[in-house]
Design a protein around this nucleic acid. Structure first.
Lengths: 241, 241
DNA sequence: GTCATCATATGGTCTGACCATTTAAAAAAT
DNA sequence: ATTTTTTAAATGGTCAGACCATATGATGAC
């Protein structure tokens, strides 16, 4: 056995235990966004700890953006189970000074590889799921509905197909940051149609297991979408892409 | 750290004010890695708040990986000003269940692109810096010293050369996570020599402004290093790289 | 000098109180 | 009956002081 297999023994402090319990409840979906936590006094009584200890746990959860305390009101769950994984990452990645184009650029590096990995590692079941997602997206366009939701579904499922959880989280965080600032653009029909075309091209390559084609298709898709969203004001445009 | 660097609290939630003050001191470099904070009792007295409030602030700072409290000993600054930006990101990326190879794989996607970007965007001044770093690394090998530090310097400087701050932070976070679990391996001479060779190859390409070559050299370097560090047990090994 | 012991300092937790704010029920005014 | 005002309860925010658990260095025995 190598020393690398071992992890430092952590003596658990009481508040860390509480953080872990509540965090798990959120990640498992047993506490949903908007749910109110028991009061600090109740939690202390239930968990057999003092209110001070409960509060230290809540401070930690609050700094993770998982809950929020409001004086005179209560403490509420901020994030859904999926967001609970992505939110801290997005917050850590994005500092207000950063150009949003930096993030867009990173996504153009990563997501084509994710598409490639997906072509390599996805399962039949996921392929069926993807077909359903794309069909739904097509229906929404003809029906005039908002395709923002299925757009997210596509990229989320793609990340899952790649079978690299860290990469999936990273990508979803980047995606989340970009969508937040672009939501305004995502409603018009031109965008929706081009987006669907792009998704279908990527999926076709994945279905065939052609990773190189999947990568190319995804890059093309991202560049098209970016062009619509941010226009010509792209950064760099250097010779090295 | 002297008490004179702090001032009494004034804002809404007292502990947030304290977090902000200490965080700023760390980011400005007035509190360095390893420095001990005043005791909780002293902080309370200085800031005119109770010890409970001080502790809530410390819990927040601790969850940001900026400080660490050790019972019976004290509370210490964990991160330098640079790491203060990277640490929360690393914490958000890494959940214990994740395979470290996932992270290694992501790095192999990103860092070659960073090398490519560096070749495209770096300045003469940074090239001179890099020459100094590599010379230092060479000296350490002949002198038998520990080259871990200059190894970090190389990748940090490279990230800066790429002129994409988000990407730089992301890469450093990945790097940090990998080094933490591998530090044991990084001492032997074979590794040190191969690492230096790899760095020099990447730098040569960057100096010429040849982004494609820089990318290839970096990928080769990472694969060599990985081979030494984790042996043959690489994940996937699929056809799509 | 070496080792065991102990005192001290420091973080970890507990108790109980009071303050500040929000909410909604109760009371008053219309 | 409706609206407005007042009041009381609930809840988070802060405080004070105490005791527990652990790490470290000083003390003393050998």
């Amino acid at each position: 056995m190598s020393a690398g297999m071992l992890k430092a023994v952590e003596k658990k402090r009481a508040y860390e235990d509480i953080v872990e319990q509540i965090r798990t409840l959120i990640e498992e979906g047993r506490l949903k966004r908007g749910d109110q936590l028991p009061t600090e006094r109740e939690l202390g009584e239930t968990l057999k700890v003092s209110r001070a200890t409960v509060r230290e746990a809540i401070r930690t959860l609050e700094s993770m953006k998982l809950v929020q305390s409001r004086q005179g009101n209560g403490t509420y769950v901020l994030s859904s189970s999926e967001e609970a994984l992505v939110q801290p990452l997005a917050a850590a990645l994005f500092h207000e000074k950063d150009d949003i184009l930096d993030i867009s650029f990173i996504r153009k590096i990563i997501e084509p590889y994710v598409a490639s990995l997906a072509a390599e590692n996805t399962t039949l079941e996921e392929i069926n799921e993807m077909e359903a997602v794309l069909k739904q997206q097509a229906d929404q366009i003809t029906g005039g509905g908002n395709s923002t939701v299925t757009n997210i579904d596509f990229h989320t499922l793609l990340a899952r197909m790649a079978k690299n959880r860290v990469l999936a989280r990273l990508l979803l965080a980047l995606f989340d940051l970009l969508e937040q600032t672009r939501e305004q653009y995502l409603q018009n029909e031109e965008w929706a149609k081009k987006s669907l075309k792009g998704h279908e091209a990527v999926f076709a390559a994945i279905k065939k297991g052609d990773c190189a084609a999947a990568r190319r298709a995804m890059l093309r898709h991202l560049e098209q979408v970016e062009e619509i969203s941010v226009g010509k004001k792209r950064k760099g445009g250097g010779k090295c892409r």
